[in-house]
């Protein structure tokens, strides 16, 4: 979990470069919003309008970009742009769904573990380690075995796997915040534990957790792509970018757009979400917002 360690160990941006970085932060937020916004817009439009019907295979196989198929067709003759637009919807649903599920379970479990006393903490940590060691794909297959393979089952599987990672990160951050004197000060001021959590713990762990969730959003998009390839994700004709990638692989030299387009969109979405999270953290953080 080098990513987790990197996030936990990351300095809080204090330092000689912080001031100059601060300026560019609002720029990254803008760029991130634009990138994510484009994907969201495409997904929304796909709900009302598509260039072709998803099942329409009348366009001929592996057509190059041009009219009327702007980006060409896939090996079954389906319009690539149509598939990509539907894929945006699936990708966003997969990312958002697993982040909401995994984030909710993970943060609650992490808070509980962070506050837990010695032996309970050990038990929870061991459980989390086992869960993290468990491959996401295997978990997905288990979930799919109990339910039918669908976008929902993929989201549940990815969300569960994610929750363990989020929980472990949250636990470490909670422990670190609890070690601060301001927690003791809150207690000697008569602040109840639930209020300590809401007013001190959550605001202090949220910046790091939210950035991690954005990272997880990107990973969830990629995980959904792999699950779809294995037939464990959204069933056709709900095109997922991941499945499109895999399907177009064989014909990459004949029709490169089939690989490039979904690949680029995945990258755009993942980078966009990360930039938004990074920028948003700075806007929300008083130690970066006001600098003298």
């Amino acid at each position: 979990m080098s990513v987790e360690q990197a996030l936990v160990g990351a300095p809080d941006g204090e330092g000689p470069k912080a001031a100059t970085r601060h300026v560019s932060r609002s720029v990254t937020l803008t760029i991130g919003c634009v990138l994510v916004g484009v994907i969201v817009l495409v997904a929304v439009v796909s709900l009302f309008w598509l260039p072709f019907a998803p099942e329409d295979t009348s366009g001929g196989r592996l057509m190059p970009p041009g009219a009327p198929h702007l980006l060409g067709t896939d090996k079954l003759g389906r319009d690539l742009l149509t598939q990509l637009m539907i894929g945006a919807r699936i990708a966003l649903a997969a990312g958002a769904g697993s982040v909401v599920l995994g984030g909710a379970i993970g943060i609650v479990a992490g808070l509980a573990a962070g506050f837990a006393t010695r032996w309970l903490d050990d038990v929870v940590s061991a459980l989390l380690d086992i869960l993290i060691a468990f491959p996401t794909l295997l978990l997905a297959m288990l979930v799919a075995a109990t339910q039918a393979a669908s976008l929902t089952s993929a989201i549940v599987a990815i969300g569960l796997a994610m929750s363990a990672i989020v929980a472990r990160l949250t636990r470490v951050l909670v422990k670190r915040v609890l070690a601060h004197d301001f927690i003791t000060a809150a207690r000697t001021s008569g602040t109840s534990w639930p209020r300590v959590v809401l007013e001190h713990v959550v605001p202090n762990i949220w910046p790091t957790v939210s950035v991690n969730l954005a990272l997880q959003f990107g990973l969830a998009v990629l995980a959904e792509a792999s699950l779809s390839y294995l037939g464990l994700g959204a069933p056709p004709p709900n095109a997922s970018w991941g499945r499109m990638l895999q399907e177009a692989q064989a014909s990459v030299f004949i029709a490169p757009v089939g690989v490039i387009a979904p690949g680029v969109l995945i990258v755009v979405l993942v980078i966009g979400v990360n930039l938004v999270a990074d920028g948003f953290r700075d806007v929300a953080d008083p130690t970066r917002r006001r600098r003298r």
């Binding site: 601060h180 004197d181 301001f182 003791t184 000060a185 809150a186 000697t188 001021s189 008569g190 602040t191 109840s192 209020r195 007013e199 001190h200 605001p203 202090n204 953080d285 008083p286 130690t287």
Partner: peptide, 26 residues
């Protein structure tokens, strides 16, 4: 109470008004 390390005893994400008024609220 007052602590030794003033860098640890104030919540970095709260304004001074909020920090100082915590006992009043709690």
């Amino acid at each position: 109470t007052v602590f030794q390390d003033p860098y640890s005893s104030l919540d970095p994400r709260q304004s001074v008004a909020r920090i100082v008024s915590e006992p009043l609220r709690s």
